[in-house]
Design a protein around this nucleic acid. Structure first.
Lengths: 118, 118
DNA sequence: GTTATATATGAACATATGCTCATATGTTAA
DNA sequence: TTAACATATGAGCATATGTTCATATATAAC
């Protein structure tokens, strides 16, 4: 006889755990922002852009050559990363040099790499 | 006159940067695994599951109640998280209690939260 | 002005993804 | 064995996402 008989009709087996999770839960708006942050990293093209920019700034053309994808595709992804404040750019003539805004993304990527390598 | 005239016909403006990025680049298989890791966190349901499990183990039924989604949806997402070795479970009678495998995910989520809050 | 370069952007399209629903599996009680 | 409970899983469907293509914008050279 197991001790799972304290379930209620709505099938919540451990109400105190559910309540605890609810109390500790982040606000929906924060959840959304964290999800968007991870979405930015959850794509091969964007992750490679971010890892490449850890070495220093690069222009769209450089990134397209490195990634072996079209400049249009790179530009679309850079816009997304810009909107999420992960990268920024500076203009030098017609060329836009992109760089990481800070090292948060790098640190997160480093932890992730550590995880998958262990 | 700007100094961006060193481009070649294949439109690689800074070949040394592209080569540098290539040398530092991770293996494609590692990129894929890191992307999959971030994909796991890049969904509201899964992220909330992970954050909830930081408080302690919960069964499918608990999680469904907390998340206010169907148990089937939770089960599908837990399978994905299991396959990525982010969560594991123990059986007690018919009930499966899920928990985080280690604290890597929590640390990554913590950093992400720090980032979006700054 | 015109032309070329570098990048941005909108629309369209194909694929990926997350949910639902139905059904299957595994465990326990009667 | 039969029934009930807890969870898992496959198929189908609607939405999300990433790329391509065409076009627009911005800067510089002429």
């Amino acid at each position: 006889m197991a001790d799972y008989a304290d379930r209620c009709q709505c099938r919540i087996i451990h109400e105190e755990r559910v309540d605890g999770a609810r109390r500790q839960a982040l606000a929906p708006s924060e959840i959304d922002r964290v999800v968007d942050f991870f979405k930015a990293l959850a794509d091969t093209t964007r992750l490679r852009i971010i890892l490449a920019l850890e070495q220093g700034e690069m222009c769209v053309c450089d990134l397209a050559a490195f990634l072996a994808v079209s400049e249009s595709a790179v530009s679309h992804q850079l816009r997304l990363l810009r909107q999420l404040q992960l990268v920024t750019n500076r203009r030098q003539g017609p060329v836009l040099y992109y760089r990481l805004v800070d090292d948060h993304v790098s640190r997160v990527a480093g932890l992730a790499l550590e995880h998958i390598r262990e």
